[in-house]
Amino acid sequence: MLFVLTGSTPDALHHLPRRQMTFQFLDRACRRIGIDMVLTTPERLDSVRGICHGWSLDDTEQQEWKPRQCHLAGGVVWDAMYLADLKAHKVAYRRLVDKLPALGVVMFNPKFPAKDELNVLIQSVEVEMQAPISQSLLPQTHVNVDADDVVRLLKDTNGRVWFKPVYGSGGRNMLLISRVGNELYQVQGERFYRRHVAEQWTKRQLVRQLQKALEKRPYMLQHDVQLIQTPDGRKVDFRVTLVRGRFGNWRKTAMTARFGKSGHSLTNYHAGGSIQSLTVMNPEVRETLTSLNLTEADLGRIANAAIKAAEVISARYNTVGMLGIDVGISSDDGCAYVYDFNSRPGRDILTDREVDVTMNQVARFACYLLNTVESRVLH
């Protein structure tokens, strides 16, 4: 049985049609491969008694959610919580994560390690593949940094660096920093603690602002990839949505081009960018590729870079089943660089068809966990 953990009850789903559609697609996929699916919330998963109070879709044309109670034993849990759900159900969620292993229940796609940890992992781990992972897959990254590190690095390289929180999404609380003179810095940030930054700061101002940010959360430094641009000057990168399947292997279920606003440093959809699906090759996609001086083979390079990174991650964290990996093509050297990882990739950038394919793959991975003896001792 697949238990789908979400922050929304069926009553709330009526006001969230796209999320409702996602779970309907998943239920249909589960039925096709013979798995029961139950929707539930953290408070309704009784990890002490090992009982789930949830809802299942009936098989009528109306597809209504009906209350259902069942035992957790022998099932798997898909953590489908959004970031807002995690905040709203913080206490119950933490209690659940702590208790499930004692019941022998596997939860896949739980809370992800910090981004600095993932960067270190990918830079250091050797995997047995035809094209081994190498450090060049990632932009140069520095972890455990303080404000003085930023100043020192910019003095040594005269390049541009991203000051990125190790936990974060949507381009929030990031700064793009470059040195433009003796103790003078150009700083950009579209969503830096709820304000837009496009200023020149002195060294003293920069250090003070970075120290304030570091008091709130840890940060890492990542060298800026000079992204390719559209003819009208908008930066472009690519979100590759990946899900593991029935044999535990990664499969691309969607590829989305993300276009930043003209003159902006972020490409994130929620930071005002725009998107285009590149999953299915058609005349519109070919026209976009031509305008970017890319080919279909370049899309393959982008997908391969994302899959290589995902394979390293799942080799260490083997209950990771879904990832949204951001890949940028450098206008300097043409290389594909992986520079961000999301274990809860936003499904609002996917087409309905891509959501359907993604949910089919989620059901297959649940089947893999249910049918694999080793899944009971996954760490």
Rank of each mutant, 00 (worst) to 15 (best):
M1R: 04
L2Y: 05
G7H: 13
S8N: 09
P17T: 08
F23M: 05
F23Y: 15
Q24I: 12
R28I: 03
C30H: 09
D36Q: 07
P42G: 07
D46K: 01
V48E: 15
G50I: 09
H53M: 11
D58I: 01
E61K: 12
C70F: 15
A73C: 07
A73W: 06
V76S: 01
W78A: 00
D79L: 02
A80W: 10
Y82V: 08
L83A: 11
D85R: 12
K90P: 00
V91R: 13
N109R: 09
A114M: 13
K115S: 00
S124M: 09
S124F: 03
Q130A: 08
P132W: 12
S134L: 07
S136H: 14
L137W: 05
V145C: 03
V150L: 15
V150C: 15
R152I: 01
N158K: 14
G159T: 12
W162F: 11
W162S: 00
K164A: 10
V166H: 01
G168F: 14
G171C: 08
M174F: 04
N182W: 13
E183D: 06
E190T: 09
F192S: 03
Y193W: 09
R194L: 11
H196G: 02
W201Q: 03
W201N: 09
T202G: 13
Q205M: 14
Q211Y: 10
K212S: 11
K212I: 02
P218G: 05
P218F: 14
H223V: 08
D224V: 10
V225T: 06
Q226N: 06
T230R: 10
D232N: 12
V236E: 10
V243Q: 13
V243P: 03
G245T: 10
R251L: 15
H264S: 10
L266A: 13
A271R: 08
V285C: 03
V285Y: 01
E287H: 14
T288K: 15
N293W: 11
L294G: 01
T295S: 15
A297E: 12
L299R: 13
L299M: 14
R301M: 14
A305R: 03
A309V: 00
A310I: 01
Y317N: 04
V320K: 00
L323A: 05
G324P: 07
G324C: 06
I325H: 05
I325S: 04
D332A: 05
D333P: 00
Y337K: 08
R344L: 04
G346K: 06
I349R: 00
T351Y: 12
C367W: 14
L370D: 02
N371R: 12
E374M: 02
E374I: 06
E374S: 06
